[in-house]
Simulated scan of single mutants.
Amino acid sequence: MFVKDIGIDLGTSNILVYLEGSGIVINEPSIIAIDTKTRAVIAVGEAAKLMEGRTPSNISTYRPLKSGAITDLDMMEKLISALLAKVPMIKKRKIKRVLICCPTNNTNIEFKTIQDIGAKLARNDVIVERESKVAAIGAGLDISQSAGNMMIDIGGGTTDIAILSLGDIVSSVSLKIGGTDFDNDVLNYIKKKRNLIIGQQTAERVKIEVGTVYLGIKNDTIKITGRDIVSGLPRSTEITSQDVYMACKEKVGYILQAIKSVLEITPPELSADLIEHGIILTGGGAYMPGLRELLTEELQLPIHRAEFPLECVIKGTELLLNNAYIISNK
Rank of each mutant, 00 (worst) to 15 (best):
F2R: 15
G7F: 01
S13E: 03
N14Q: 01
L16R: 15
L16E: 08
V17L: 06
Y18V: 00
S22P: 01
S22D: 13
S22T: 10
V25M: 04
I26Q: 04
E28Y: 05
S30A: 11
A33E: 02
T36C: 08
T36N: 12
E46I: 13
E46L: 09
T55N: 01
N58Y: 12
T61L: 07
P64G: 05
G68R: 03
S81C: 01
A85K: 09
A85P: 02
K86N: 12
I90N: 10
K92S: 06
K96T: 12
L99F: 04
L99E: 03
I100W: 09
I100S: 10
C101I: 05
T104E: 11
T104K: 10
N106L: 14
N106R: 11
T107V: 11
N108L: 15
F111D: 08
K112H: 08
K112Q: 14
T113A: 12
I117D: 00
G118K: 04
L121D: 13
A122K: 06
R130V: 11
V134Q: 07
A139I: 11
Q145F: 09
A147F: 07
A147D: 14
G148W: 14
D153K: 14
G156Q: 02
T159N: 07
G167F: 04
D168S: 11
S172R: 05
S172D: 11
N184M: 12
R194G: 06
G199M: 08
Q200Y: 00
Q201T: 03
E204A: 13
V206M: 01
E209A: 15
V210W: 01
G211A: 15
T212S: 07
Y214N: 06
N219V: 00
D220V: 08
K223Y: 07
T225L: 10
R227N: 14
S236V: 04
S241L: 13
V244C: 06
Y245V: 00
Y245S: 02
A247I: 15
C248H: 04
V262T: 02
E264H: 07
P267D: 05
E276T: 10
E276C: 04
H277S: 14
I279G: 03
I280N: 01
L281F: 03
T282D: 06
G290I: 12
E298V: 11
K315F: 10
K315I: 15
G316T: 03
E318A: 05
E318T: 02
E318C: 05
A324I: 11
A324P: 02
Y325S: 01
S328K: 15
